[in-house]
Nucleic acid binder design. Structure first.
Length: 517
DNA sequence: TCTGGGGTCCTAGGACCC
DNA sequence: TCTGGGGTCCTAGGACCC
């Protein structure tokens, strides 16, 4: 707690949906829902227009479509959101060296540590200036909370939404919190909320009255004690700018449950490879391998194995995950698989002579499908990895498809129009210019030709293999102005890998099972 | 046509060691 | 040799957050 409201919390308003509306003029003022479009997708973000229909985050997409059948439904474009996020974080960095990002669209800033505010008036000024700057640079709105602690700053930004600022004057915390529902406090979710309600507590004031002993008895030592402090408005947590990741994991939910044991095993191998890719991109290695299985009935279990030393070897992680899989009963079907690594260390394979030798005999006879021969194993790799790793584009849930090696019995369907041109992604046509994929299917692609600065545009339909039409990088939401932060998405990236994928797919046009739309 | 993906932190029991 | 206690590591699960 400090006596001046110099901790700032920024939360961008409906971030993913707002970015899409800024990128697509025809969607402004309309309900927009961003999330997974598959049969098991959920909502990531709903625009405020969509929220009026009752759509909200984490809702199953099917339910959202029932509530708001006329909304625009889009897959997330993380490359775009990451680029906007970097612009925002850069603005926060001008306020203070102490910036703690919580996600792409949210962060704490210690204004006092940055010398940008030391009392109510200066904090207010800094907050309002920040909101103006964010709008000028990104075209989007963010809400700001200012208070003497993290908890209150965050509650402030929540109250400020959308597009507002709330300052909570130190000294007024308890009066403000008292009547609020317990769910307002961070760390009180559905389970704890129910627990407390059954014990007769629904407001923050009632938590404070109950006392620490009672809350500890109810919720356990750590949770009870911290909740009691929060209920009194006490929160001394510092803004921490750099935190090392403690685990890396990847997981996939399948459109239909997997029953074939062999298929389950190949999916685990692919997940292990993806996990190691991310691990290596971060320059880390890990000692404990975790397998996650969600079964047909949504029951979820994890199995883990700790190795003798850390590894970033895909073969080692595959083997461990495979062993763990053998201890799991998958009859009935598998809905989700995940592979993760914890116990992270900073060094990589070179340091692991002993480990490598010990593991050698157990290594698979065939090389992993995704050998990264581009990067020499030498010292240069770590130094350049950062620049190259930024370009990974997360495109919803890609489900089937061989890992590219082409070997193996898994059928490789032609890349259908909806995968080559995912709904919502940017394209460029040689004649008509910039636009975005409004829909695709049956080998056709429908494009709306408009871009961030333009008026709402018109729609045209093309063959999916039209050579004049190609996928393109996201454009800045606001035209660049001299002296302002650059547009990260426009930085040079690795050559589009979708090219080789689609080449491989296209050659087999007449071949095996092409997905019917 | 129910329930994503990426994380963090906490608890609890058993093994093992001193 | 009838019985203690503390510390750390490993494993599994659950709650919570965005």
């Amino acid at each position: 707690m400090r006596s001046a409201p110099t901790i700032l919390h920024l939360d961008m308003d409906a971030f993913f949906a707002a970015a899409e509306q800024a990128a697509k003029p025809s969607l402004r003022g309309k309900p927009v829902v961003v999330g997974g479009l598959g049969p098991r997708g959920v909502v990531s973000t709903a625009s405020y227009e969509a929220r009026r229909f009752g759509v909200h985050s984490a809702m199953p997409m099917a339910q959202a479509r029932r509530l708001a059948p006329n909304a625009a439904y889009l897959v997330p474009r993380f490359a775009l959101y990451r680029a906007v996020s970097e612009q925002v974080m850069e603005l926060l960095g001008r306020l203070s060296p102490l910036v703690e990002p919580l996600s792409l669209d949210e962060a704490f800033v210690d204004l006092e540590a940055g010398g940008s505010a030391d009392d109510t008036a200066s904090a207010l000024a800094a907050g309002e200036r920040l909101r103006r700057d964010i709008r000028a640079v990104t075209g989007l709105s963010g809400s700001v909370g200012l208070a003497g602690s993290k908890m209150l700053a965050k509650i402030g930004s929540e109250q400020a939404k959308p597009d507002g600022l709330v300052l909570i004057e130190p000294g007024t915390e308890r009066a403000l919190l008292g009547p609020m529902p317990v769910r307002t406090l961070p760390g009180v979710g559905p389970a704890t909320g129910d627990h407390l309600r059954r014990a007769g507590m629904t407001t923050v004031a009632e938590l404070a009255e109950a006392g620490e002993d009672e809350l500890v008895r109810l919720l356990g030592k750590a949770h009870g004690a911290s909740l009691y402090r929060m209920a009194l408005g006490r929160d001394d947590r510092a803004v921490v700018s750099e935190r090392d990741a403690k685990s890396v994991s990847v997981e996939d939910t399948f459109d239909v449950d997997l029953h074939d044991r062999v298929r389950v095993r190949t999916e685990v191998d692919r997940l292990a490879d993806r996990c190691v890719e991310r691990l290596r991109a971060a320059g880390r290695s890990g000692r404990t391998v975790v397998l996650k299985v969600r079964r047909y009935d949504f029951s979820t279990l994890t199995r883990s194995e700790t190795l003798r030393g850390p590894t970033d070897d895909p073969g080692v992680v595959r083997e461990a995950a495979g062993r763990l899989l053998e201890s799991v009963d998958t009859t009935g079907g598998v809905r989700l698989l995940g592979v993760g690594v914890t116990g992270l260390a900073d060094f990589t394979q070179e340091d692991l002579f002993a480990q490598a030798a010990a593991e050698e005999s157990a290594a698979a006879p065939h090389a992993p499908a995704d050998e990264r021969e581009r990067e020499p194993v030498g010292a240069g790799a770590a130094g350049t990895a950062g620049a190259a790793s930024g370009g990974v584009v997360g495109v919803g849930t890609a489900v089937p498809g061989g890992a590219g090696s082409g070997g193996g019995p898994v059928e490789v369907p032609e890349a259908p129009a909806e995968r080559r041109f995912p709904a919502g992604h940017d394209v460029r046509h040689r004649e008509f210019g910039a636009g975005w994929v409004q829909g695709s299917g049956v080998r056709r692609v429908t494009v709306r030709f408009e871009e961030p600065g333009s008026a709402p545009g018109r729609v045209r339909t093309f063959w999916a293999d039209d050579p004049d039409l190609e996928l393109s990088e996201p454009l800045p939401l606001v035209p660049a102005v001299a002296g302002q932060s650059s547009w990260p998405a426009s930085r040079p990236k690795s050559r589009s890998e979708s090219r080789s994928d689609s080449d491989a797919g296209r050659s087999g046009d007449s071949g095996s099972g092409r997905a019917r739309p």
